[in-house]
Design a protein around this nucleic acid. Structure first.
Lengths: 174, 174
DNA sequence: TATAACATGTAACAAGTTACATGATTTC
DNA sequence: GAAATCATGTAACTTGTTACATGTTATA
């Protein structure tokens, strides 16, 4: 919703782009930061257009498929800064869907939940490796910080889970 | 969706309860773990009923408003364990809406973003304090672990943000 | 000549939220 | 007698996803 708009407006703050281009940029570079899908982006761009935050004009080079090029308007720029300020001052509400399962851990015997948690630990480890093997984009300080933020939480999650597993193991050993 | 069902089934694994009771339990004790709203719970209970995971019977004590008491069925129990195993083995996909804003930090001058990030830091601090001032529930190992998990991420977020602020300050000072 | 990449969308669906509606009973 | 608590919902809306539809051009 608001974050989707902020994302699109922010991308258009750099330069005018057409929808496909925007979607590609998101897919290739921001897959970790957002999960917005293409059709959502197209629809949101439409909404921003209607709201006057963004201005669209069609372009066509030769016989290539036509494109809708979006540019941010003055109004959109103002809106962007509003959304940005709000977003930066806001503390994320974090809720982790895995906490739901965690709460009911007690219903499974050790032999059951131990391999399950280990499976999760391995998945987290792979995500971290993937992250660390990817070089920084160089799209600017902000983007790098966002990536760093993500990594911090991945690692926190990993270490916590590892500690849970070893504590549970210790309890079991008694 | 699946987590909502898991949550409700898990609550009913302990004992049969009526909707209001379930909602109250969630509101009072699990507000940190889930953001499910009352009407969603009622609707989900209906769906679980239709699916045969849960069995409903109406009760009325004297003249008090009637209640729908839900009990988990054999099928529901099986389903609960399926959902639980899947949930425990799963790594959360984490995306933080605040990362969107972070990415565009560069668009604001230091004098602007510094107080905004500080405002966020204060909010995080308050959340952590609130968390730590609340005694553990004693609803079991799993619930305590889920709370601990939440706190771990809050603290990771806090420390990261503090480090970002001091690094940005250092850059600025040059 | 097939298929990947370019470029846009729509329609149907699913999930969840908000705000409202209802009505009894206990408490102040 | 008013307000809070008990107990349930429904209808309208928002948001987002999935899967499909369309047609061109470069590449293998």
């Amino acid at each position: 919703m608001d974050e989707r708009s902020l994302l699109l407006l922010g991308i258009l703050m750099v330069q005018s782009q057409h929808g496909y281009q925007i979607n590609e940029f998101i897919e290739k570079n921001l897959g970790r930061v957002t999960d917005m899908k293409k059709s959502t982006a197209y629809a949101t761009l439409d909404r921003l257009c209607e709201a006057g935050d963004v201005y669209m004009h069609a372009e066509q080079e030769g016989n290539r498929p036509f494109r809708k090029v979006y540019s941010i308007t003055q109004r959109g720029t103002t809106h962007f800064f509003e959304l940005l300020r709000f977003n930066l001052a806001k503390a994320d509400k974090m809720n982790f869907s895995s906490d739901i399962g965690m709460m009911f851990l007690d219903h499974l015997p050790y032999e059951e939940f131990f391999p399950l948690l280990n499976e999760r630990l391995v998945k987290l480890h792979k995500q971290i490796e993937l992250f660390e093997s990817t070089p920084p984009h160089g799209y600017g300080l902000g983007v790098d910080l966002a990536m760093e933020h993500h990594l911090v939480h991945l690692k926190a999650d990993y270490h916590w889970l590892a500690s849970v597993i070893s504590r549970l193991q210790a309890t079991q050993a008694k």
